[in-house]
Every structure is written in C-alpha cells, then in structure tokens.
Design a protein around this nucleic acid. Structure first.
Ligand code: SF4
Ligand code: SF4
Lengths: 153, 153
DNA sequence: GGTTATTGAGACTCCTTTGTCTTAAAATAA
DNA sequence: TTATTTTAAGACAAAGGAGTCTCAATAACC
C-alpha cells in the first residue's frame, strides 16, 4: 500500500477536524465513532499528530483535539510525513541501501518522475480543499455514509 | 513502501535474467549470490513468477530459471502484478472498502491521476529497456557493484 | 473534595510480511 | 543404480504493523 493504515486514519480524522469550525475541540471518541475507527488506535495516531504540532489537545470535559492551523494551510503531506515519515519520497523503487543519485539503479529516472507526481499531489492538496469538495458533492469518508453523516450530532 | 520487498527482489532477479542470453537457464543460487538476496527467499519468489508463466524452470544439473518471453516483451507491470497483485492500482488512497467511482471519497480524483502515473510507468517500462540503460551506464542492481558484476562469472 | 470526561503512555496480543530451514522431486552424469 | 545438482513445497521463526486493553494525568463540574 502507498500509505499505511495509520496514515489513512490520520488523514480521515484530519479531514473531519478541518470540516468543523476552527478552534472547536472534538473528542477523539466522536471521531472514532463517526469514522468507524478503533478508538484506542485512533488515539495513538492522533497523539503522533499532536506531538508533531499538527494538532493540539485538551484534556477533560469539553476537551478533544483540533488543528493548530486552518485546514487551508495544511497540505496532506504534513500528515503523511508525521505518520509515515519521508520514506515514500526518499526511499527508492528498488530499495537499494544508501542510494542517492550518485550511484543510481536503472529504474531511477522513471521512478523519480513518478515519485515527484506523488509528492506534488500531497504537497498541493490541502485539507480544506478536500473538505469543500467533499461537502459540495457529499463524498464519503467512511464505508457507508456520505460527508454529511459527520454532522448529525 | 510502494512495492513489497518480495516484488523488488523479483524485479531485480528479472532484470538479471533479461540481461542474459534468452534461453539460458540460470540457477537461482547464482542470482541469489550476485544480487545478495537470501537463496531460499528468492526461490519462493521466483516460484510465484514461474507459476504465473513469466518464468520457466528446469530441475537438475544445468537447470535454473529463464524468462518465457524476450525481456523486451515483459513490462515491469507483469512482475508487480504476479507478486504484489493489483492492489496498488485498484485499491484506494483512503482504503475505503468496496469503493469504486460510484461513491467516491474526496481524494479520489487526485489519487486517480497519481495512480495512473504509476500504472503508466509500470506498463511502459520493459525489462530490456532497463537492462540496456543499466549496461550502457553501468548502473547498479545491488548495494555495491555496478551492472557489470553480474557478468564476471 | 469527589466524580466524570477526556487525552497520554505503555504493555500486550494478533496478523502479515520477511526470512530460514528441511525434505521431497526431478534431471543429469558416472 | 547411485550420487549430485537443481527446483518445489511447506513448516517454522523473526520482525513489524495493526489493533486492544489498562492505568495514569489533567481538567471540568457538582
Ligand atoms: S537509483 Fe534511484 S530508484 Fe534506484 S535504488 Fe537508487 S534512489 Fe532508488
Ligand atoms: S473514492 Fe477513489 S480514492 Fe477514495 S476510497 Fe474510493 S476508490 Fe479510493
């Protein structure tokens, strides 16, 4: 898989957060229920995002997590880097150790192109962009429901 | 990672085979030594390629494996499909189950573009193409050596 | 202060991928 | 026929990713 499961869950939760009013703390339990993700697992993932400064958290009643920046300033890349690290964009198609451009393998040129396409996509797509699209067309973030299910509290 | 380790090993071994004269059986032991891959592990991987008809094998002295077709007719895609399956090209960025274009997630359009770039690359690159490039520029297939190490028997 | 709601941290289990090992089957050669 | 070289098949172990559970820490509310 391109992205790990943790990463995908992190992205979905981030989209959820970006779809809410900024500044509002959302309990992880709410997200895990709506997004159909194990609560404890999602908690661990979001802790990583908090540690990276992408989210901030607040304990106790009315607590939860929220984005530290408006979703329009958060490219998908930030979340991918925080959870999966940079392997996808630095590591290589043939996985040869210690490889740079100095001593390339035959696949390098073609792979570099493809990899750049992936990088571009992740860097130039923001949470808000996807949220707007998702709201407009009622696209889905979960197995069954459309984007709107996130809002019938 | 984009490709599994098994898949990468399968690709490297296939490049090795494509670099030899067609029709020649190469013992797996020779490849595992040159490519620095565990013999038993590589054997299992190549068995998959044999089962898929990409390779054919011959037992006993002077036995080994070889490509069933000239390397110029084998796109990387064939090997990737045989080992990793079609997930990479059919499965989706957000990994929602049972997803097609009917009920897409917000990432679908962007991801579909990127995925097509990967598909194009794998479909339009053949083993022979990479071998020619590798021979011409002495590119590497292993940690240390250049392409030429494959030939000092 | 005590109870409740929430995140934080870590141990633990489960499953898949990766890798090793052993034995069988086939082909050759002496 | 017997020994040797090779692939085939499958059991097994090790490592990492995915997921569960428990307990502590913090904040709000009564
Ligand atoms: S040459 Fe490029 S694609 Fe090939 S192993 Fe090195 S960095 Fe990766
Ligand atoms: S909409 Fe497209 S990218 Fe999103 S989960 Fe479905 S198939 Fe995958």
């Amino acid at each position: 898989m391109l992205l790990s499961k943790s990463c995908v869950y992190g992205l979905r939760a981030s989209l959820f957060l970006a779809s809410r009013e900024q500044g509002e703390f959302i309990p992880i339990r709410t997200m895990s229920d709506k997004l159909e993700i194990s609560f404890h697992f999602l908690t661990k993932i979001l802790q990583q995002l908090t540690a990276e400064g992408i989210l901030e958290s607040f304990k106790g009643p009315n607590g939860g997590v929220r984005l530290t920046k408006p979703g329009s300033e958060v490219p998908l890349m930030d979340i991918v880097l925080a959870i999966d690290g940079s392997q996808l964009l630095t590591e290589c198609a043939l996985g040869l150790p210690g490889c740079g451009i100095k001593n390339p393998c035959p696949l390098h040129d073609k792979w570099a192109e493809t990899r750049d396409a992936i990088r571009e996509m992740l860097e130039h797509t923001t949470l808000t962009e996807l949220v707007n699209k998702g709201k407009a067309e009622n696209l889905r973030l979960t197995t069954e429901g459309g984007f709107d299910i996130l809002f019938d509290d």
